[in-house]
Each structure stands twice: as structure tokens, then as C-alpha cells.
């Protein structure tokens, strides 16, 4: 469904993504692992058409169509949503407004405000609060709910567990699994291997802008040492 091949992305003169390739199939959850500074966020931003980085080579195909070079709103409209690093909520919008600006309440198809509140009851209780008044877990739920409002087929999640309390990380894993069961493709950027393995079917490891490891989650679980050496965890 998503096919990234030989991607070359730069921040100024820094060659951050050096020929990375990966695929996400329909309804598949794929984890992208790697230490800090290895280019995970740059790769996600490149797929989403956000600048910087400056993509100078390679290809990003979505259902066979080249989407590299399209403005990010066009990419989103083709069915790719993003939960950006750091949530990036809108400080001056209420919880409800985060959802209704992307899909008016009159639209009754796919993800609706009512459905989102059913899926995230906590957000329903906070519907009149503004982005800045929510707890870390609520912020993350809102960032996910916001992404769902565009009825994506693939959702890019950039370190959603970052800064969450352990109990909230568990909760987030459940949410991701439920989204996966509903048929959504997921590309999850994670630093935490175990959090990634809890939800992913396949795992990629990015190191200095290249994919250096690629395996099924079940293979990793059988032989974790082969992977952990890349991540510097023991």
C-alpha cells in the first residue's frame, strides 16, 4: 500500500535519510525503530510531504501512485494521516473543534465526532477544554482522534508513547491494536522495542538514515538479541 524506496532527504546540507526503503501493506502494523537522531521523524515527515526536510531522491508510492512532491494536504486527502511527534495540538481550539474543523458534524460517514467520543470517552468528558488544558494521555488520544477524522487507510504515528506514564502507554497500545483490528494500516515510530513489539507485525530498524534490519515481529520475539544490538538496549 505504501512503498518507500531509496529515499534521500536532507536538512540543509545534512544527508539525513540515505536511501531508506520500506513498505507497509494493507491493514498491517509496522514499527520503525532506531535510536535518537537516526532519521525516524525525518522519514515520516518526508512521507507526509512536510518540509523541511528537503527530499532530493527516491520515491514514495501510495497504492502505486507517486506522492513525492505533492503538498501534504493532498497526501492526507489520499488517506494518510499523521500523529505528529509532540502531538502538535492546536492550543486555541477546544477538543470538539479539533475534530469538527477536519470533518463538520453534518458529515455522518466514517469517523464522526460521536464515534470518536465513543472510542475515547475521556475526550468526551473534556470536549470543551482546549488543547493546552489536557493531560499527557488525553493529548495523545486527541492527536489520534484528530488523525482518524480524515478517515485514513494508513496512520503514521511518530513516537506516540513519548512522555506518557507507563499505564498510559499500555492504554495506547490497546488503542493501536484496536485500530489495527479495524483494518487501519499503521506505521509506528518507536524508541521502545517492547512497546513496538506489542502492536507491530513487522519491524524495521533505521540507523544513520538507512534501514539496517527488517524482520517479522515474531522473529524478533524469538531472537531479540539480533535486534537489540542496533538499538543499544540490553
Amino acid at each position: 500500500m505504501l512503498e518507500v524506496s531509496d529515499l534521500q532527504s536532507f536538512y540543509g546540507s545534512a544527508h539525513v535519510i540515505q536511501g531508506a526503503s520500506l513498505t507497509v501493506r494493507e491493514k498491517e502494523a509496522v514499527a520503525l525503530l532506531g535510536r535518537n537522531g537516526m532519521g525516524k521523524t525525518t522519514l515520516i515527515r518526508s512521507i507526509m510531504g512536510l518540509a523541511p526536510p528537503d527530499v532530493r531522491g527516491g520515491s514514495v508510492k501510495w497504492k502505486g501512485e507517486e506522492i513525492l512532491g505533492l503538498p501534504s494536504y493532498q497526501i492526507a486527502r489520499r488517506g494518510i494521516a499523521i500523529v505528529p511527534q509532540g502531538r502538535r495540538l492546536f492550543q486555541s481550539l477546544t477538543v470538539t473543534e479539533h475534530l469538527t474543523t477536519l470533518k463538520p458534524e453534518s458529515v455522518k460517514t466514517g469517523w464522526t465526532v460521536a464515534k470518536a467520543f465513543e472510542f475515547f470517552p475521556r475526550l468526551a468528558e473534556r470536549r470543551q477544554h482546549r488543547g493546552g488544558q489536557l493531560s499527557g494521555g488525553e493529548r495523545q488520544m486527541l492527536a489520534v482522534a484528530r488523525a482518524l477524522m480524515i478517515d485514513p487507510e494508513l496512520i503514521l504515528m511518530d513516537e506516540p508513547s513519548e512522555g506518557l506514564a507507563p499505564v498510559m502507554v499500555q492504554n495506547l497500545e490497546d488503542i493501536i491494536l484496536e485500530l489495527k483490528r479495524s483494518g487501519l494500516g499503521i506505521l509506528l515510530v518507536e524508541q521502545n522495542l517492547y512497546s513496538a513489539l506489542a502492536v507491530a507485525d513487522r519491524v524495521y530498524v533505521l540507523e544513520t538514515g538507512r534501514v539496517v534490519y527488517d524482520a517479522l515481529a515474531s522473529e524478533v520475539e524469538a531472537e531479540p538479541d539480533r535486534l537489540t544490538k542496533f538499538l543499544g538496549v540490553h
Binding site: 503538498p71 499523521i82 463538520p104
Partner: peptide
């Protein structure tokens, strides 16, 4: 209004508005 909410969201973070499928231009 929805346009107004989009303008406020754009004041907060125009890039993220665009990443949500809105033609921010």
C-alpha cells in the same frame, strides 16, 4: 465558524493543519 476555527488552528500551527488534509494556502 469552521473557517474561523481553521484560521485559529493555522495561527497555532499551520503545518499541522496542512498535514490534516486542509489546503492551508
Amino acid at each position: 465558524t469552521r473557517l474561523g476555527a481553521l484560521i485559529r488552528a493555522g495561527v497555532d500551527d499551520a503545518e499541522t493543519v496542512a498535514a490534516m488534509g486542509i489546503n492551508i494556502r
